[in-house]
Amino acid sequence: MSEKIGNVWIFIEQEGGKIANVSLELVSKGKELATKLGVKTEAVYIGNNLESSVSTLYHYGCDTVYLSEDPRFEPFTVLPYARTIVSLVKEHRPNIILFGATHKGRELGPRVASTLLCGLTADCTDLQIDDFDDKIGQKQYKNKLMQIRPAFGGNIIATIVNTWQDPQMVTVRPGVMKLNDPDKSHKGKLVKVKAEIAPEDTVIKVIERMQKEKDIDLQAAPIIVAGGYGLGSKENFKLICDLAKAIGGEVAASRAAVDAGWINHDHQVGQTGVTVRPKLYIACGISGSVQHRAGMAESSKIIAINNDPDAPIFSVAHYGIVGEVNSVIPKLIKAFKAKV
C-alpha cells in the first residue's frame, strides 16, 4: 500500500464526565488493532468539562485524545456530536472508527457514516485485521477490518468488510471486548478541538430526562446465576436468588423469564440483553436459545441444569446436570454450605 494508512479512532462515550465502560473496552481493542496495523490509537472525546478524565484514556492505551468541549454538547443530542466528528474525520482521515453499540453509539454512528458516505457495521462481537479477496468485485484488499457480527436473529455470524474508502466504521457490543489493565505510566497527547456546531444542529431540545443507574452491573460480576422459563413460576425463581446469595453471585435471567415478569430487564442476558463473560455462569432451567447462548457462551465455566437432556444450553456447558432445577438448586446450596 503506497498511501499511509490512518489511525484507529474510538468515540468515547461519557455521561457527566464518567467514561462508559464500553469505550474503555474499545480503547483496549483499538490498541490491539492499531498495534497490528502499526498506527496510533486515538480517542475522540466530546462533551463539556472533561479534561480531568482524559488521563484515564491514556492509561488504557490512547496515544492521542482529540478533546472537544462546549456547553452545547450537554445534554447529549446527536447533531452537534455528528458534525464535530465528521469535521475531525475529514481533517485527520482515520482508518477505523469504533463506537459502542449503545443507544448513543447506534444513533450517532449511522448519522456520521451517512454523511461521510462510508460503510458501518452494527453490533460487532469481534474485530480482526485480515486481507479480503472480493471475488464478486474482483479486487484484493490488504489489512482490512474484519467486522464480525451475529445476524438473522443470532442464527448466523457474518464477517463484513468495508470496501470503500476509509474510515471503516463499526459499533461494538458492550461487554464483548476484554478490558486491558490500565497502565498509569502511559502518557498521550491532548489535542483540543473547536466544537463544530451549526445553528440547525441545536433544534432538538431535551425537555425532560430521567435516568437511573442500572439495578446491577452484570458485566462486572464474576459469578452469575441465571434462571429461565423452566423454573415454572415467579415463586420458584426465588431459588435463583437464594443460590446467588449463597455463593456470592449476581442474579440474571433469560428473555423468557424477563418476559414472564419474574425479574426486570436489567437482569437479562443475551442478544437483547447484556453480554457477560463471568468466571462462573450457572444456567438454571434455561433451554439455551441461540440468542441467549450468544450472551454467555464466553463465560469461563458454565454449569447447565435442565430436565431436557437435549436442551441446546448443554452444547456450551462445561458441566451438565440433567434434572429438575427445583430440586437440584437446594442441593447445590446445601453442598456449597457444607464445603465452605
Binding site: 472480493d134 467486522q147 448466523i156 447462548r293 457462551a297 462445561h318 451438565g320
Partner: peptide, 18 residues
C-alpha cells in the same frame, strides 16, 4: 460499501463437557 466476506452458522461450543 460493506460486503459480506463470510457467513457461518452459529456453533457455540463449550470446552470439555462433564
Amino acid at each position: 460499501p460493506t460486503k459480506v466476506k463470510q457467513i457461518m452458522s452459529v456453533i457455540l461450543k463449550g470446552g470439555t463437557f462433564k
